[in-house]
């Protein structure tokens, strides 16, 4: 059965057709959400919410973009939504201690990921990448995840995020550069150093 046929069945509300349509996307969306949000619980919620929204909003999908682009776009929105809600909650909870501090206190609480030093101690490269990702801005994060982890082309990323190709390039560059800086501080490149004698200053 081709995608068009499944689409029209799914639009009618046919759950099985919808499931066939999203076959293979669940893992990818979950993966994206996991890297964006940093933990499996939120990632699960985000993937669930994305697919439910796709199901109920299928009428709105008119095929201007590919189904894949459309569904990733929803996933991206859901993730940013969760991050926004999370940052609101965090602001509230930090309200009181902030009164005592000098206003910089809030910056210390970058995320609910494990602290970098713990991670390096455990030698979990994967986890330190996660916590490094949590430190860069969400706009940079989503671009670098889509490109370097999920392997989308620049054009696909531009479509998913609804931004210009040039913006994709500049965000990706900034994301890579700042991620490199953070990962270097975690000494993650120590053992991987590519026989380079000239080190020192960074870009």
């Amino acid at each position: 059965m081709d995608e068009q046929r499944m689409l029209s069945l799914a639009r009618e509300g046919e759950v099985a057709a919808f499931e066939a349509l999203i076959e293979g996307y669940e893992d990818k969306i979950y993966s994206l959400a996991f890297r964006m949000l940093g933990n499996s619980e939120d990632a699960r919620d985000a993937a669930q919410e994305t697919l439910l929204k796709a199901y109920s909003g299928l009428q709105r999908f008119r095929g201007d973009a590919s189904f894949s682009t459309w569904i990733y776009r929803i996933a991206k929105n859901v993730c940013l939504d969760i991050l926004r809600r999370r940052s609101k909650q965090r602001t509230y909870s930090l309200d009181e201690p902030m009164e005592l501090g000098d206003g910089e206190v809030s910056r210390q609480f970058a995320g609910d990921m494990p602290a970098p030093e713990d991670v390096v101690m455990h030698g979990e490269v994967r986890d330190s990448i996660n916590s490094a990702l949590a430190e860069i801005s969400e706009h940079h994060r989503v671009v670098i995840i889509l490109r370097d982890i999920e392997g989308f082309t620049y054009e696909e990323i531009a479509n998913i995020l609804e931004i210009e190709l040039g913006t994709v390039k500049s965000r990706l560059y900034r994301a890579r550069a700042s991620l490199h800086e953070i990962l270097s501080e975690m000494e993650l490149f120590r053992d991987r150093a590519v026989g380079q004698s000239e080190g020192g200053d960074d870009g």
């Binding site: 990818k28 890297r35 499996s40 999920e150 991620l179 990962l183 590519v194």
Partner: peptide, 15 residues
């Protein structure tokens, strides 16, 4: 280097 280290990150599967 950054690109390489990220490409080694395994994809996640849904629970």
């Amino acid at each position: 280097e950054t690109r390489e280290i990220l490409s080694e990150v395994p994809s996640q599967s849904v629970p």
